[in-house]
Nucleic acid binder design. Structure first.
Length: 591
RNA sequence: CGGGGCGUAGCGCAGGUGGUAGCGCGGCUGCUUUGGGAGCAGCAGGUCGGCGGUUCGAGUCCGCCCGCCCCGACCA
């Protein structure tokens, strides 16, 4: 493509509302443009990169034997009521929905479990038709409570979603593994540094799930890894090996009722300093309002060691409820008789309709002895609480947030924390949707069984943005070869006829050799062309200028290293092809 | 949805106490220049987010609405 004939425009300054680097650089490079919050257009240049990624995803999905479909985005409410997700998604506020002229209600699909399950149940009647895996690459809509970060969290976004169907768990396991392998290949082909971590399955539901994360400091997710290399989990899911107990081997000392004043000290750290003890000897008592599956509301207390925090994603599952929300401070006086900071497990008054406030212990408190806890009175703590002697616990749960330096749950290594961008999420759904929607077949024993489903999402636009987050410098994007809009930029520096002719000829031979080249033939000064080439981030740059040309050469460099070599014109195509084939990290030079 | 902030030219921004809108970049024309976002001269470009109010007069003050961004709970 000749730049002078293209639509393409770059920006000197990023739009003021672009915060993260991928949004800024993709905007400045002229690859995307915002239409509304969380809604973006791809320009011809941006769409070239997107299309490359789409093609990689399609190839790898096809290679697993998955078959591509195209499901409606506009979906009738009835389908969503059937799966039970209509109300939940409406309540969460993330479903775009609208009415047709006869007042029929429709959703703009945020995901397609219902549509695919409906397609399958109408087509499949026998176990003999299974297994299979169906996928699509289509726009999804989610009215995100807070769209942000450009392509990283849009309200309209491109996603690849695949759905596998099997008659049994073993088949599902096989599909799941195949998808994991395909995802690894996709992210490797894109040249991304990624990690596979254990995850919470969230609103999609189902049992096991794992996330593919692109490692980047700007990522929204915290990831926990063992430095022994045998454990990785989203912090929402991460667990640790049991922590060392400071009270190990101690005799339980007599309980010290309200004997430890802590006036005005709210945090465990301040209280520990004042009481001349370690923060691990302070007990945090947190009150939560829980809602169970039947809609029953209850207040519960959760005790955790003062140096740890409760992980509120893990909490509902651990307590066996649907939701657990930190109790609003305004209810503390009536239940605990004090403000935050002095709440303790002894003497809590149950709210109306509840006989007592059940006390759950985080694992860190299971054997606690000789620790302080709030006395449910302003500015007062008890001392020498010994949990087994002094409390009747409703259960022990594992709800602490993992920390850098904690021991790995695998027993090997220490935990480290990195940040990441979730680009893929694979789930074993099991029979959740097939049971709700009666997607069944007759098995060999002529019994009707619900199909075992898996679902596998991959954020296509998000992956593109993640690639930029991971690979850029002060001058612009450094595209991995596989995702670059063009593999190579060709700049002609002067208007000089000799230079123009040499550049024109090189352009033709590069095209003939099958190299994707953007030829910057604009009537611009050299500085402008250099800046734009760096900003867009073509993996390889060829500069045709009077200086080198006088010696029969042109300059070739990679975006990553930027060290230009003068090479003979006749060798350019060969060198560019070899450099691209090697990932364009460093220039391939032939003797 | 709660908390904070913003909306003025294509982009980035400035416009005390009300007096009829400017700067930089970009664009167009001409000359000059040509190896890291050149220089000079000239020109074009604005319902100041919208509606209503106060006022002789509103970008500026008041009210309502809309849009956008940031911090929290959701997610590919």
């Amino acid at each position: 493509m000749r730049w002078s004939q293209s639509f393409h425009v770059t920006l000197r300054e990023a739009p003021g509302d672009a915060e993260v680097v991928s949004h800024r650089l993709l905007s400045r490079a002229g690859m995307i443009q915002k239409l509304a919050a969380g809604i973006y257009s791809y320009t011809p240049l941006g769409f070239r990169s997107l299309r490359k990624l789409i093609e990689i995803v399609r190839e790898e999905m096809d290679a697993t034997g998955a078959q591509e479909v195209d499901l409606p985005i506009l979906q009738p409410k009835e389908l969503w009521v059937e799966s039970g997700r209509w109300q939940r998604y409406i309540d969460d506020g993330i479903l775009f929905h609208l009415e047709d002229r006869k007042s029929g209600e429709f959703a703009l699909a945020p995901t397609a479990e219902e549509a695919i399950t409906d397609l399958v149940r109408r087509s499949v009647t026998s176990w003999r038709q299974l297994p299979f895996n169906l996928y699509q690459i289509r726009t999804k809509f989610r009215d995100e409570i807070r769209p942000r970060f450009g392509l990283l969290r849009g309200r309209e976004f491109l996603m690849k979603d695949a759905y596998s169907f099997d008659v049994d768990q073993k088949g599902l396991d096989r599909h799941y593994e195949k998808m994991e392998t395909a995802y690894r290949r996709i992210f490797e082909r894109c040249g991304l540094e990624y990690a596979l971590v254990q995850a919470d399955s969230g609103a999609i539901g189902g049992a096991a799930s794992e996330e593919f994360m692109v490692v980047a400091d700007t990522g929204e997710d915290a990831l926990v890894f063992s430095d022994a290399g045998d454990y990785g989990a989203n912090i929402e899911k991460a667990v640790t090996a049991p922590l060392a107990e400071p009270w190990a081997g101690e005799e339980a000392r007599p309980f010290g009722k309200a004997d430890s004043p802590t006036p005005g000290l709210i945090t465990c750290e301040d209280q520990a300093r004042h009481l001349k003890t370690d923060v691990t000897r302070i007990t945090k008592t947190m009150l939560y309002e829980t809602i169970d599956a039947a809609g029953g509301v209850r207040v519960v207390a959760v005790l955790i060691r003062g140096d740890l925090d409760i992980n509120e994603v893990k909490l509902p599952k651990a307590l066996g409820v649907m939701h657990a929300k930190l109790l609003d401070e305004k209810f503390l006086p009536s239940i605990a008789g004090c403000r935050p900071g002095f709440v303790g497990p002894i003497g809590l008054k149950a709210p109306d309709g509840q006989s007592e406030v059940p006390i759950y212990l985080d694992r860190s408190m299971e054997n606690a002895r000789n620790v302080f806890c709030g006395a449910n009175a302003e500015g007062l703590h008890h001392s020498n609480l010994s949990v087994k002697r002094d409390l009747k616990a409703a259960g022990v749960v594992e709800v602490a947030t993992a920390r850098e330096g904690d021991p790995s749950p695998t027993g090997k290594g220490t935990l480290r924390i990195k940040r990441g961008i979730e680009v893929g999420h694979i789930f074993k759904l099991g029979a959740k949707y097939s049971e709700a929607m009666k997607c069944e077949v007759a098995d060999q024993a002529q019994k009707m069984i619900p199909l075992m489903m898996g679902c596998y999402g991959l954020g296509v636009g998000r992956t593109l943005a993640a690639a930029v987050e991971q690979s850029h410098d002060d001058d612009g994007i450094v595209w991995p070869v596989a995702l670059a809009p063009y593999q190579c930029a060709l700049l002609s520096l002067q208007r000089d006829a000799e230079v123009q002719r040499a550049a024109d000829e090189l352009y033709e031979s590069l095209k003939t050799a099958g190299v994707e080249v953007l030829y910057d033939d604009r009537d611009e000064r050299p500085g402008v062309k250099f800046k734009d080439a760096d900003l867009i981030g073509f993996p390889v740059r060829i500069v045709v200028g009077a200086k080198a040309l006088a010696k029969g050469g042109v300059e070739v460099s990679t975006r990553r290293e930027k060290k230009a070599e003068v090479v003979p014109v006749a060798k350019v195509v060969e060198i560019v092809k070899a450099t691209l084939a090697a990932g364009a990290r460093t220039l391939a030079v032939f003797a």
